[in-house]
Simulated scan of single mutants.
Amino acid sequence: MITLHHLNKSRSKRIIWLLEELGVEYQIKPYLRNSETFFAPPELKNIHPLGKSPVIEDDGLVISESGAITEYLIDKYGQGKFAPARGTNAYVEYSQWLHFAEGSAILPLLLKIFVAKDGCKTNFLADYADAEMLKILSYVEQCLEGKKYLVDEQLTGADIMMSMIVENLVATGAISNFSNLGRYAQQLASHDAFKKADQVEAEYS
């Protein structure tokens, strides 16, 4: 059975969604952030030296990093779903979006969170974060024109990876001026497995 080491309010919620979509048997080992520092508990380092989540255990393997976990689970359990066929142009597009979520897209979001938490006036960082955020939002908005999903008009691991970015944009209100992104957010949230991931996350928070 797959074990998901799940930290509340973290990237691992989207792995719950993927596991639910795949219909595989899994169990959750929950961890809670420190309520004051928001750091992960030290116990997570017993599973992986970085002490971060998500991490899964499956068939003796310990796998970290959301993108790697997503690729592994879809390759092993997807039965041809949730990713285009390898060697196709669609797979190349899929792979770019899969890595975009934790590459280009996450940086401005994190910078804005850090600037807000720091609470000090910055000489450069705040303006840079705003400019990068607008660039990312405009790019995704354009790419979603006339589309329900990122690739091949079907739910893939790329959409599941992007869901955390989209949920952050919804929560902060940053999505309000981007109609395609708003429609995309509603499309992702319409999946039963997405709703189940919400429920599971809430149980362990």
Rank of each mutant, 00 (worst) to 15 (best):
R33P: 11
I74S: 02
E203N: 11
S138A: 15
Y91V: 00
E25C: 09
L4C: 01
I106Y: 04
L50G: 04
E167W: 10
R33H: 10
P49W: 15
E203F: 12
G182Y: 03
A158K: 03
E153D: 13
H99M: 06
N180P: 09
G87H: 01
S35F: 11
E25A: 13
S35V: 15
V62L: 11
K52M: 05
I16T: 03
R11W: 00
E65Q: 15
S163W: 04
I106L: 09
L73A: 06
E71C: 12
D130Q: 12
L22R: 03
V115T: 12
E102Q: 11
H48C: 08
L137R: 11
L73I: 08
L50S: 08
A189L: 07
E167C: 14
F114H: 13
W97E: 01
E153T: 05
L73T: 02
M161Q: 07
D152F: 06
S12H: 04
K117G: 10
S95P: 02
S53P: 04
F124P: 04
L111H: 07
C120E: 15
E65H: 11
Y149N: 07
E20Q: 09
P84Y: 02
N89F: 15
L111T: 11
A197S: 06
E25M: 08
K195I: 10
E203A: 12
K148T: 10
K135C: 08
E141T: 14
K112D: 10
L50W: 04
L98C: 02
H6E: 05
K147C: 00
V151Q: 03
S53D: 02
N46R: 13
Y91H: 09
A131L: 11
L98K: 04
E132D: 12
M161P: 01
V140L: 15
A193G: 05
S66F: 06
I15C: 04
K29L: 12
G23F: 08
L169W: 14
S190T: 06
K147E: 00
G87P: 02
E65P: 03
N89V: 11
Y26E: 02
L144V: 09
K29R: 12
N46M: 12
W97H: 09
F178V: 02
T70K: 04
A101D: 01
F194K: 00
A174W: 10
K81P: 00
E203V: 13
E201C: 08
I160L: 07
Y72W: 09
Y204R: 10
P41D: 00
G60W: 11
M133Q: 13
K52R: 07
Y149Q: 06
I2G: 00
R14G: 02
V55R: 02
L98V: 00
Q142D: 14
A185P: 00
S104C: 06
E57F: 09
I165E: 01
M161N: 03
K13R: 14
K112H: 11
L98I: 01
K52Q: 05
E203W: 10
G119M: 05
K196G: 00
L109F: 02
V92E: 13
K9H: 13
I160V: 15
S104Q: 06
R86G: 09
Y139D: 11
S176C: 01
T3H: 10
E132Q: 15
T37Q: 07
Q142A: 15
L22Y: 06
I74L: 10
D192T: 13
S190W: 06
V92T: 14
Q27C: 09
A202Q: 13
P49F: 15
